[in-house]
Amino acid sequence: MNEGPILKVSHLKTYFGSKGGLFSKGKVVKAVNDVSFEILHNETFGLVGESGCGKSTLGRTIVKINEPTSGSIEFEGRDIVKMKGAELKAFRRDLQMIFQDPYASLNSRMTVGEIIREPMEIHGLYNSTKERDQKVSELLETVGLKPDHIRRYPHEFSGGQRQRICIARTLALNPKFIICDEPISALDVSIQAQIINLLQRIQKERQISYLFIAHDLGIVKHISHRIGVMYLGSLVEVGESNSLYREPMHPYTKALLSAIPIPDPRVERSKAAVEISGELPSPLDLPSGCAFRTRCPFASERCAKETPQLRQVGDRQVACFLYEK
């Protein structure tokens, strides 16, 4: 096993410009605002946050669907921000992505065989169509579908089966790293568990690292080794998943955890809710200092003036002045 992280993101910023009108200046959405973290080999890193916190943009920036505004993304020690041409193509073989909506991410005019074969053809893997088809059958079996599904079209499959096809397509290139962007939130509860178990089995068999993006902390805690919590473009807390769940430190993590509905009436009856007031501020107009201060029960004057940085506190990284002396 290689030493060091497989992915290292430092001070990454992705901004989207919004065009100004005749009299107004254009505003900037800071979707990802100075984010740094590392993912190790064979590790699952969970990224949670509410809608609009920038978690999907972060994932899309790492696969270079969105261009970063500044910062660096190192994949196995090489900076991918500057990559172009053949080098970029080679890198894309190692890093693949599974999307949220399995209805939108499969071409309905292609058969399952064509869909899974396409990445191999683009990257020139294997010599003949016959060899590729052989590989497609193997992949279908890996993800729990039948080899004779190869000639069928996506509309003949249910949501869970479609997500399996998507997973087979990402595995076609033997990637080292897969970004899963809400891979189960479009699926039914009884199907979600099937996909989660499949992802875990594939990781064990093929030593793949995952960046698992979701809004459901319960599932993220189950699948991840470490979790990062995002709020309005910034990471507010990063830690080992069990420890982060048991003892959340950042006020936002605490609020997020207390809001998860637990499937156990006894726990629900005894649970004390942590109140957070107000709603998510507009990302066009971020509060000064700590982005969470407008809703935080512990906010002080300092929170408005300075922006807290992620700092090591015990086994955890937290961006909050409460944990600074």
């Binding site: 249910s158 869970g160 089966q161 039914d188 509860v189 009884s190 199907i191 979600q192 568990a193 099937q194 989660i196 178990n197 902390l217 319960g218 599932i219 805690k221 189950h222 069990n242 769940y245 998860i260 637990i262 499937p263 156990d264 726990v267």
Partner: peptide, 24 residues
């Protein structure tokens, strides 16, 4: 019982999810 076994209760220790095979 199948439905209860395939949702993760984060309050408990992590155990392997028991999915219901097949589809509706």
């Amino acid at each position: 019982s199948g439905l209860l076994a395939c949702v993760n209760n984060p309050e408990e220790e992590d155990k392997e999810l028991q999915p219901i095979p097949g589809s509706p």
